[in-house]
Simulated scan of single mutants.
Amino acid sequence: MQIVAEVLKSYPGITVSEVRGPCRDATLVRARHEAIYEVRRQTSFSLPQIGRWFGGRDHSSILSAVRKIRKQRQEACE
């Protein structure tokens, strides 16, 4: 997915397959959450569809990632 590849340009050394995988390293999780947020923002994919693409994650995990990044971005603008 092109959106994920664009997000990962900000995270050198992290691959699309790593973002879709199960690893929970802090830097990788941050990149994954950013990618999930951008996919949700830029597409009409449902939460379950995004979750399936990101390694079979539950829709609630996707929603949590979107909310987390949205909150961080709002706080950065204040």
Rank of each mutant, 00 (worst) to 15 (best):
Q2L: 06
I3Y: 10
E6W: 15
E6Y: 15
V7M: 00
V7I: 04
L8G: 12
K9S: 09
S10H: 10
Y11V: 02
I14W: 00
T15Q: 07
V16M: 08
S17E: 15
V19W: 02
V19K: 02
R20A: 12
G21Y: 00
G21F: 02
C23A: 11
C23F: 04
D25N: 13
T27Y: 01
V29I: 11
A31Q: 02
A31H: 00
A31F: 02
H33P: 06
E34D: 12
A35E: 10
Y37M: 08
Y37T: 10
E38P: 04
E38R: 13
V39Y: 06
T43G: 04
T43W: 01
S44P: 00
S44V: 10
F45S: 09
S46H: 01
L47W: 07
G51R: 05
R52D: 07
G55E: 04
G55L: 02
R57L: 01
S60W: 12
S60F: 08
S60G: 00
I62S: 09
S64H: 14
A65H: 09
V66M: 04
R67L: 08
I69W: 10
R70E: 14
R70V: 00
K71V: 10
R73L: 14
R73F: 01
Q74G: 15
Q74E: 14
E75I: 12
E75Q: 14
E75T: 12
E75F: 11
A76W: 15
C77W: 15
